[in-house]
Nucleic acid binder design. Sequence first.
DNA 1: CGGCGTGTTGACTTCGATCAACCAATGTGG
DNA 2: CCACATTGGTTGATCGAAGTCAACACGCCG
Lengths: 247, 247
Amino acid sequence: MPQNNAAKKITLEVVKTACSNCNLRELCMPLGLSRQEIERLDEMVSSRRRLRRGEHLYRAGEHFDAIYAIRSGFFKTDVLIEDGRDQVTGFQMTGELLGLDGISTEAHSCNAVALEDSEVCVIPFSHLEGLSREIRTLQHHFHKVMSREIVRDHGVMMLLGTMRAEERLAAFLLNLSQRFTARGYSPAEFYLRMTRDEIGSYLGLKLETVSRAFSRFQEEGLIAVQQKYVRILDTDGLKKLMSHQRG
Amino acid sequence: MPQNNAAKKITLEVVKTACSNCNLRELCMPLGLSRQEIERLDEMVSSRRRLRRGEHLYRAGEHFDAIYAIRSGFFKTDVLIEDGRDQVTGFQMTGELLGLDGISTEAHSCNAVALEDSEVCVIPFSHLEGLSREIRTLQHHFHKVMSREIVRDHGVMMLLGTMRAEERLAAFLLNLSQRFTARGYSPAEFYLRMTRDEIGSYLGLKLETVSRAFSRFQEEGLIAVQQKYVRILDTDGLKKLMSHQRG
DNA sequence: CGGCGTGTTGACTTCGATCAACCAATGTGG
DNA sequence: CCACATTGGTTGATCGAAGTCAACACGCCG
């Protein structure tokens, strides 16, 4: 039955979540592994998971047992407190890891939501720890990834603690641009996957302020913006804006 | 020569930077290690380093090769940008680790400064990685510590992004109180080791605003404050203040 | 003692929040 | 396919919390 075979083959292909033939490898995994070591990574990734726009990958409080590598799509993470306030703690794109916050207490401390249809690799954390006890470069790479997250958070603290509204938005746009570039997309032109409200939450601003800053940038010829579509016209202008001292 | 012997003994004691007889072990290292494993930790810690108030443990840009466990004292970490702005990213006390930010690029990304005379254990990072490849519980503990740092940073982002001045200061005081308590000190009474300016930088406020908030808390009978000496009179009052919605 | 760090307080300003109206895009059911 | 609802975004007017500028007080150390 050739049809059956074909179906089986496809299923296998889908189920076989191989790092060894994933072209995102360099983003989420260490370079310079031997062929053998790369094949062992395949064992580590237990499955994939597809999410539709708006779906939660995990929620705060849920038990932690895996981290996730984004194969495609776009996510946000946020923290809520009882009184209703919430803070978006980050936006994650292809090749980035989600779930590192859960290691500390074995429970997730934030929510991860897909902002567009997405697919992630599920990496059971015990597998990752096991394998990184054997593969030194994997261990080191993982430590670097966690550390990079800490450094990134410090950058956000700097942004929230010292920058004024327009500086924050400029920093945000430049950061997005740089990350899209690293993934082979245009540095100057992209669709925002998040709402003004979510940008505002991330930047510690109200959505109206974000909207006004977008308009102002447009008036000044720094960007062209129409809804979620953004084109950066003057990168240097944005950079200059960012380094203007407060006051 | 009995005197010589005594001197030698003391020197040895000082040089021998043993985790195995350090009473901070539970704070910075995993529980439930075997006697043998604990002795192996001793090899990991290569030396100690004393710092005077105001001295830098490391500076942004310096090469990273070790992390530091605080044996005694008090530190701040901060990031500067060219235009002169700076952001205090954290205050660290006994039993906490410093230097995790450096793993990512092999260079420190912030400055660590002693706010009082302090002593740290120097843990060469390659030793730590080596040992954690062998001791599973050490590996897991270290991952938890890094993850906890990420979660902590998210908390600060929430604070900076959504809280008003008095809420921030209340959160700050309660956090200090809780950490002092965990170390066996009074939960209600302590000396601040940092200036109003440093508190302000951490909380994203100007020093005048911090000073005013302190005065206000005093007027309302929540705390008694005199310079760097703080006594918390109404913990619940501070907590209530913290959970008041913006607006 | 005088000078400098640090902290407090007051008067005034400003940036971003708030409140509110309106518009554009998208989606849904008849 | 259109009428209508809903969600997301823009813009204006006003307000208020925190920043800024400035004067002064307090301790600490040489």
